[in-house]
């Protein structure tokens, strides 16, 4: 029977559980530690406990925990998707995972060039982590992307990559790039260098957080409106926020689903653009050729010496 290969094995089920379990743990943690409701409160991530560290104490927050949970979930998803890969693909799972891999590689190659083909897993990681983090708010979890620290970490990594590829042509080339097009613009260039990760981090964080804030405000507003409109109803019926049914869901589609995915995509696109755009590909090629030529020359001289001897 062919269906045998399609049936879920025990390991598959275990992996699916491992995919869902992190989110369940997150929800459980949130419910267990939820403070009594006190109207509108727009705060940052909840702090579970604080670890004393040098320079600055490290508070373990909801955002940190949730992002690790997302990480574990993606890991389980990976293992689940790549289970039972065959040369002759016969499962939907394999088609899906191949489609994903090929799409990401195509995207990376299209927008960064063949030299950066190795960036595909990194871009996939950014998209997956960012999108799933933002979407975790659908489950009522605190989305890690609405914590500035989380997004700032990614932005710092991207900044490091941008600078690394700019340095590929040597520190002199990098410094010369800062003084272009005219020397007195150098301070501006330095600011724009630093502004890149800052703007990336704030853009992502701000978009997701604004969604949360707007959703909280709308919910509170609707509660008030509901009390005004239906307040004359007797008893508990009068206190029930009828207007809170449905309308927040529509907003959630935009702020959580659409905005979350869009911000993930934007962050990935900006990463690709900045890294490949900052890399002086032509200069690098020339430098490489020069190096190669010098090496060849040296080799030739060496050979000649050998022959003479």
């Amino acid at each position: 029977m062919r269906s045998k290969s399609r049936r879920l094995t025990a390991v598959d089920i275990l992996l699916i559980i491992l995919m869902i379990l992190p989110f369940a743990i997150g929800i459980l943690l949130k419910v267990l530690t939820a403070p009594p409701s006190e109207g509108i409160s727009i705060t940052g991530a909840r702090v579970y406990f604080t670890i004393p560290m040098p320079i600055q104490d490290l508070p373990i927050t909801e955002a940190q925990v949730n992002s690790v949970l997302v990480l574990i979930s993606i890991f389980a998803l990976c293992l689940f998707m790549t289970r039972g890969l065959k040369v002759k693909a016969d499962s939907k799972r394999q088609h899906a995972v191949e489609w994903i891999v090929e799409k990401v590689e195509g995207l990376v190659k299209d927008s960064m060039g063949d030299y950066f083909a190795g960036f595909a897993p990194f871009i996939a990681a950014i998209i997956a982590l960012s999108a799933l983090s933002s979407l975790s708010s659908l489950l009522g979890l605190y989305p890690p992307t609405s914590d500035l620290n989380v997004v700032a970490g990614w932005a710092v990594l991207v900044f490091a990559l941008i600078t690394y590829y700019k340095f590929k042509c040597g520190p002199l080339g990098y410094l010369k790039g800062l003084a272009e097009p005219v020397a007195f613009l150098t301070p501006m260039n330095i600011i724009s260098e630093v502004a890149t990760p800052v703007s990336m981090a704030f853009r992502h964080y701000g978009n997701v957080l604004s969604g949360t804030v707007v959703a909280a405000l709308v919910a509170a507003g609707l509660q008030g409106l509901s009390a005004m409109v239906f307040g004359w109803l007797p008893g508990a019926l009068g206190d029930f926020p009828f207007l809170q049914i449905g309308i927040p869901a529509v907003l959630s589609i935009y702020f959580d689903v659409f905005s979350g995915c869009l911000q993930a995509y934007i962050f990935a696109m900006l990463t690709m653009m900045y890294v490949s755009g900052g890399f002086p590909a032509e200069d690098y090629e020339k430098r490489k050729e020069k190096k190669q030529a010098r090496k060849n020359k040296q080799n030739n001289i060496h050979k000649e010496n050998l022959e003479v001897n």
């Binding site: 940190q64 992002s67 890991f75 997956a128 982590l129 620290n149 970490g153 710092v156």
Partner: peptide, 17 residues
């Protein structure tokens, strides 16, 4: 530290993927 942890998380996910 949170920034560093988040950075490491992304790197970790990159390696996992």
């Amino acid at each position: 530290w949170q920034i560093v942890i988040s950075l490491v998380n992304l790197l970790l996910l990159f390696l996992i993927l």
